[in-house]
Amino acid sequence: MIARGERAPSPIHRGDCVLVTSTSAPVVADNRPQPGDPLDPDAAISTRGLVKRYGDRAAVDGLDLDIRRGEIFALLGPNGAGKTTTVEVLEGYRKRDGGEVRVLGVDPARGGRRWKAQLGIVLQSGAGDSQLSVRELLTARASYYAEPRDPDEVLELVGLTEKAGARGRTLSGGQRRRLDVALGIVGRPRLLFLDEPTTGFDPEARRQFWALIRSLRDLGTTMLLTTHYLDEAEALADRVGVLARGQLAEVAVPTALGGRGTAPAVVSWTEDGARRTAETATPTAFVRELAGRFPGEVPDLTVARPTLEDVYLKMIGQSPRGVGIAASAGERGAERAAERSEGVQS
C-alpha cells in the first residue's frame, strides 16, 4: 500500500535532461517476469500467460507483465497488436481465455464494486452526447464513489473550468477528451487506465495533457497508458512495453528500448562537398578524430542514435530501417539531429 502523494521509486532519473552515454548499459534491467513466475502480489497489475482469443485468433497470446505501484507504464503497438484487448481484460470488460491476472490484488473477472471504486478508466469512446453540463456529469460520477475529488478541482486540473456550465454534447473533440479524463479521475483512483487518451489533440493540447498526467503521477496514481504516439510514451512513461501479435516484444525504459542506449551512433558531416556518414560505437572518439581533420567546425556535423520510432518500427517488423538511420537522420533536418547530438555529447 503506497501512501498517497508518495512516489514509488522511479526506475530512472527523470527530468528534462536525460544523460545517455555511448558506453552506459541500460539504466535499469528489463526485469520482466518470466512465464511460470508467481504473480507479484505487490504489483498494481500482474499477469502470467494471459490469453484472449477471438475465434481461432489469439489477440493476446501469453502475456507476462508486472506493473509497479506508482509507475506510468506505456503499452505501444500497432493496430491489432492486442493493446485494447489486453487493457479491457485488465479493466474487467472482457473475460480472458487463459492465464492468471491480478489488478490491485483482485482477479478482474471477479472484481466487484469495491474493486472498481479504486480504478479510473478512460476509454477510447468517451462520454456520450449528454444533455447534462460538464459539472453535472462530474458531480453525478463523483457520487458513485465514497471519497471522490472535488469536481471543481478536477475541472481546474483538466482545464475545463470555463466549460463547467456547457452541456456535454456541445464540447469540441479535445474538450470531450479532457472531460473523459476528468470523469476517469474524479473517483480518486489508485490505478488509472488511459486508452489512447490524446488521439485527436493538437500539439498544445497534448502538452497540457502531459502536464496533467505528470501532476497525477505526483499524487501517486499508477497509470497504464496505451498510445500510438511514441513521443508521448517517451515523454510520460517510466517503462514502455511493445506489444506485437499479442505478445510483449520488449519491456524497457524508453531510452533503452531496443538497445537504443548502446546502439551504434551515426555520425554525419560534409566533406569535399559530399555528405558522409559513419556508424560507430565510440562516437566521442570518432568526433574528436574528425575535429582534428578540420581547422574549425566540422561542417554539418550530427551525431544520432536510433529514435524510439526507429527501434519501435524494427521491433514490430515494419519497414526496419536499420542502417538507413544514417540517411534519414540527415534528411529529417538538422534541428532534430542536433538535439540528439547534444544529448550524446553532454
Binding site: 478508466i121 468517451g126 458513485y144
Partner: peptide, 12 residues
Amino acid sequence: DGTLKSLRGTPM
C-alpha cells in the same frame, strides 16, 4: 456511444 460501457467501469 459508450455511455453504458463507461458506467460499467465505475462502482455504480
